[in-house]
Every structure is written in C-alpha cells, then in structure tokens.
Amino acid sequence: MIQYYFDWSVITRNAGALGEALLLGLGLALVSLAIGTVIGLAAAYARLSCRPWLSWPVWAYVEFIRCMPLLLLIFFVYFGLPEFNISWFDKTQSFILTLSLYAGAYMSEVFRAGLGSMPKQYVEAAKAIGLRPWQRQRYVVLPVMFRITLPAISNNLISLFKDTSLAAAIAVPELTFVARRINADTFRVMEVWLSVSALYLITAYTIATLLRLVERRYASIR
C-alpha cells in the first residue's frame, strides 16, 4: 500500500472559499424551504379542495416530483427549460427554482397530513366566537398546524441542506462543487473530502439540534 501523507494546509489555504460555499449551500436550502413552504401550503389546500380541477393538477405535480430523482429535475430545469425559450435565470436561480418545487411537493404532503389531523374542536371554537373562514385558518388552524408539523419541517430542512450538494452538477459554487475544484487543483483527495464531509455533518447536526430546541419550546404549547 502506498503511504498517504496528509497535508492539511490545502484546507487552511482554501478556508475562505469553503466557508463561502458552505454559506451558499445553507442559503440555498433556507430560500428553497421558504418558497417551498408557500408552495406546499397552497398545494395542500388545493389537494384538500373538493374541486377536481384544483386538486388533480396538484396531485400530478406532487407525485411527479416525488417519483423523480432530484438530479434529473435539476437537469430538466437547467438544460430543458431554455429549449422552450425559458431562460431568464442563471444556474443558481435555476437550482433554487428546482429545489423549491421539490421542497414544495414534500411540504405539501406534510401540511396535508397536518391539516387532516387538525382536531375539529379548535375550528368549532373559532367558529363559535365568530371568526370568518380565512381568520379561522390564519389565527387558529395554521398556528396549530405549524406546531404539529414542526418535526417534519425540520427533517425537510436538513434533507434540503444535504441536497444542495447536487447543485454541483450544474456548477453552482456550493460546498461540493468548490471541494471538487480544490481537489482537481491540488489532488489532496483525502483532506478535501474528509473536511467537506465534516462540514456537512457538523452543519446538519447543528441545524437539527437548534430545531430540536425550537420543537421543545413549542411541543407543550400545542
């Protein structure tokens, strides 16, 4: 076996670039989660609607996204849409669009379950004090549902953060892409991938821990 000599200076020299790339990945995940939440909410209400022209297309959207590999969706949006003369976006925006649609499909399932498991008694109490339909959603149903679904939302955020590594496939300069570039420049395979793995691990674990604190704060309040 050939002896491998570790040279960690490659990491310290590129610390700035790696840090920036990590922040970009986090940003991509957060923005996509935010947009995905809006899409997911709209989709969940549409799915629960009794109007077929509203619930059917949304059903198709959710199942299509859930059954396609994310990497193919990324390619489809980035390489496919310009073929139809839709090319107002750069690669980062293209990725955000894809990840948001992806998150939206998963979030809609979370919210659908949350709305479905909403105890009827809260809605009746809201009716009894005279709240109008949208007020009942805004002040009672949604706040309760967010508390019920918080663990699932946390899960999605962690998944989305890890999924940002796929943006490397279309050269979005997030962590995996930058790592691959440094690797190609320096051939310090072990140092680069071990460090990047550690960065993913620590960041994801930190997100998970923070969100668990938020969950604990709200768990008893529901």
Binding site: A125, K127, A128
Partner: peptide, 19 residues
Amino acid sequence: SAQRARIGMVFQQFNLFPH
C-alpha cells in the same frame, strides 16, 4: 360568522386554542 358572533358557546371539551 356574524350571526355566530352574537351567540356564545361553551363546549364539553373546553376547546381552548392550544397555542
């Protein structure tokens, strides 16, 4: 909703808003 606002109701299971 406006009609309901003129009638109060108290339920068997309290139905307080949990949040």
